[in-house]
Design a protein around this nucleic acid. Structure first.
Lengths: 217, 217
DNA sequence: GTCTACATTGAACGCATGGTCAATAGACAA
DNA sequence: TTGTCTATTGACCATGCGTTCAATGTAGAC
């Protein structure tokens, strides 16, 4: 209702949601003061009255997207699994389910990341948020994957977690680059590839076959 | 030399290079008619005289970047390797070497891809180029990886190639998102993870250990 | 030397953008 | 009711953008 005064927090949320919706529908470039104001049914001046500048608004949207995207990731049902090989597979499945469930948000995440390459303000905030995420996720993953990592010489649990995340991101990129590719099918293939050696390794006796290159400490 | 007439092709290349340099230095948004003209030491009007519109120029840069980025990828030295497990690892190493050697071009690739999500013209062209790449790469990879894939039930050679590419892209994204992460070290960890099961699988007898879920045809 | 074709120039146009600000309107206290 | 504070408005500004185009310069044909 235009012309009616509202609480500061209410207005900020109203504006932020409008900006997020525009970005989700048509990309970051669609966030313009006028369009945001129009969608929020407010005047353009009010947007800047509450946020000071467009940059502040964009960074607030970025923060919100990342907070919800990189929220706690390793569910208890994964940690509860006892068999080492199965546990990593369950982690991968859980992450994959998240990706397929929120393609829109993942898309925005990548666009923010791309924008951060060139826009210093976005880049700095992106880095902060990713650091925060990493610090929360890595130890958690490491704890869950410790038994898996122990089976691979030279691979730490943290390294294994990083690789797992990297692999999932690869799937995400692949699915975005090839939208016609059924991501579930793609993941099934990847899982099939990983499942056998992982489970085989879990059941192997000590000193498995290694190439010279990987027989390092 | 301003004011001097030049061959059509020479001018187009001159302008395209200027646009590419600007994008590589400061992102796609840095491609403006005036800046391109200034860098190429020409007048703004001439840029549009030769390209018709900014969009055509951007798409020409995109095409050029993708053609050079997605050029032939599987070297003969990889195909020459006989041991199945080692061959896939060699493919991964080769791709990784490419990535680390051209971070700038990879970065631009991702930015084009991000832009293509919202700009129809860029999106369509991006899809064309990626289709072209896929059609060239997949069968090639499949031929090279056939022996590897045969060892994993339910995994085709093409699927394996797709997974390998996805994995590499994951590494690329990971390295871009975490610049402070030593990508070589990260890849070594990933390789260490994959190497053992791959080589172990290659040396295993028939009917290896499988979970129920993966004992499908 | 003259002429023709066209590559080249740069001023100008229309438009969209982020941002400013004086004026206004609404909520609330006295 | 009156007064005060401030949330809200919308016209306005400066800037940068893609694009147009009449004028100019240059190379080559004759």
């Amino acid at each position: 209702m235009p012309g009616t005064k509202a609480n500061e927090e209410v207005r900020r949320e109203q504006i932020r949601v409008a900006a997020y919706e525009l970005a989700a529908e048509a990309g970051l470039r669609a966030i313009t003061i006028r369009d945001v104001a129009e969608r929020a049914e407010l005047s353009p001046g009010l947007v800047l009255f509450h946020f000071g500048s467009k940059e502040h608004l964009v960074i607030e949207v970025l923060t919100w997207v990342l907070e919800t995207t990189t929220a706690l990731r390793i569910g208890p049902e994964v940690a509860a699994i006892k068999a080492p090989g199965e546990r990593l597979l369950a982690l991968l499945r859980q992450e994959m389910a998240r990706l397929t469930a929120e393609p829109l948000r993942i898309r925005l995440f990548f666009e923010f990341w791309s924008a951060g390459l060139w826009d210093p303000a976005i880049g700095v905030r992106m880095k902060q948020e990713l650091d925060r995420y990493r610090e929360a996720f890595r130890p958690m993953a490491a704890a869950v994957l410790e038994a898996d990592a122990a089976r691979f010489p030279g691979v730490t649990a943290e390294g294994l977690a990083a690789v797992a995340v990297g692999f999932i991101k690869g799937c995400a990129v692949q699915s975005l680059i090839e939208p016609e590719l059924d991501i579930a099918e793609f993941f099934a293939a990847a899982e099939g590839l990983l499942a056998q050696p992982l489970l085989a390794a879990a059941s192997l006796p000590a000193s498995p076959v290694l190439s010279r290159r990987h027989r390092r400490r």
